[in-house]
């Protein structure tokens, strides 16, 4: 498969600060790619380097094999869904969507027809003449999506597009975006700080921290085999065991991660570690139990209806050997 976007040792500095710091990355054509990282990690700058609003200080960004440095944003085969949608407030929904075709010189009749089809695609049939001000957040989001997709980009960039939506709407849009990407078959590059969103939607994802890519892989790889403490903690709040603790509990003498949902709590019998229950937090379907194992704490996710020893009572923690994953670095 050809690479849609490649980062070749790309650095982008703002004064002293390197927002993007020597990134190498290759994003295949036709995949749903997520960039996950805390705010200020440089993931949005990566997106802006692809769309052309930022230029690399060092290195090259290649789009379909071509160096992009001299190509201005309006000539790139990419379109962006902006964070707060960036709809044109003085234009109707139809004119917003028809903006791309208009500047390319498509006749009014044809571009309005294209706009109507794009509205069908995002389930907003008949909204042509509304003003963006009359729309809800979710509807604006769809208009922004239609406005980008009507240009038939080969790469669609989405900058935290679901951040402003409420939980239910966000989950619905996640499913729709995923389905849309499948049916269109184009590359989606999706920036988010929400690990659940990144895991559930993407084919591949990159975890970004402090301008560097910490790990790239499929959601399963990243979730179950994090490379470092940062990934283990940021993606799904894993338990991180020091080499000493890992060895004590029967694993390798290395920094290791242990997913809370793999930890079983028992009273007596065989256990990898033993300790005392410190806190229990009710989360609806599950309970998060914090256990003091002497100098460290391990959290376990247990079903809310399972019986639980009372606080401060001694318990045993156990897990299957493959659940404890030794990481490459600290």
């Amino acid at each position: 498969m050809a690479a849609a976007v490649e980062f070749d040792n790309v650095t982008r500095r703002f004064g002293e600060i390197a927002a993007v710091d020597g990134i190498d990355l290759s994003i295949d054509e036709g995949v749903f790619f997520a960039m996950l990282g805390p705010s200020g990690s440089g993931k949005t700058t990566c997106l802006r380097l692809i769309s052309g609003f930022e230029q690399p200080t060092e290195g090259h960004v290649r789009i379909f094999g071509a160096n992009s440095e001299r190509i201005p944003p309006n000539a790139r085969p990419v379109n962006t869904v902006f964070q707060d949608y960036a709809l044109f407030p003085h234009l109707s929904v139809r004119d917003n969507i028809a903006f791309g075709p208009m500047v390319r010189g498509v006749s009014k009749r044809n571009r309005y027809a294209e706009a109507s089809r794009a509205l069908d695609m995002v389930a907003l049939t008949g909204f042509d003449l509304r003003s963006p001000r009359q729309l809800s957040g979710g509807q604006r989001q769809r208009v922004a999506l239609a406005r980008a997709l009507v240009n038939k980009p080969r790469v669609l960039l989405l900058d935290e597009p679901l951040g402003a939506l409420d939980l239910r709407l966000r989950e619905q849009m996640q499913d729709e975006l995923k389905a849309l990407q499948k049916s269109l078959g184009i590359t989606f590059i999706f920036v988010t700080h929400d690990q659940g969103e990144a895991l559930s939607m993407s084919d591949r994802l990159a975890v970004v921290n402090r301008g560097k890519i910490v790990q790239v892989g499929t959601p399963e790889e990243i979730y179950s085999r994090p490379k470092s403490k940062f990934v283990a903690d940021f993606v799904g709040a894993s338990n991180v065991l020091s080499p000493e603790l890992s060895a004590r509990s029967g694993g390798a003498a290395a920094w290791s991660s242990l997913r809370p949902e793999f930890v079983r709590i028992s009273r007596g019998g065989h256990a990898n570690l033993s300790g005392k229950i410190r806190a229990v937090k009710y989360l609806g379907a599950t309970r998060r139990v914090t256990v003091d194992v002497g100098g460290a704490e391990i959290t376990a996710l247990v079903e809310a209806n399972s019986p639980l020893p009372s606080p401060d009572s001694p318990v045993g923690l156990s897990w299957s050997p493959e659940a404890l994953h030794a990481m490459e670095s600290e």
């Binding site: 201005p72 944003p73 962006t80 902006f82 709809l87 003085h90 903006f99 500047v103 390319r104």
Partner: peptide, 24 residues
């Protein structure tokens, strides 16, 4: 980002001026 959206959607600076900046 409204101004950036014009470039993202393929508008030249002149087109952005005429269709977005001046009306606003």
């Amino acid at each position: 980002n409204v101004l950036e959206a014009t470039a993202d959607l393929g508008a030249s600076r002149g087109q952005a001026l005429r269709h977005v900046v001046l009306p606003l």
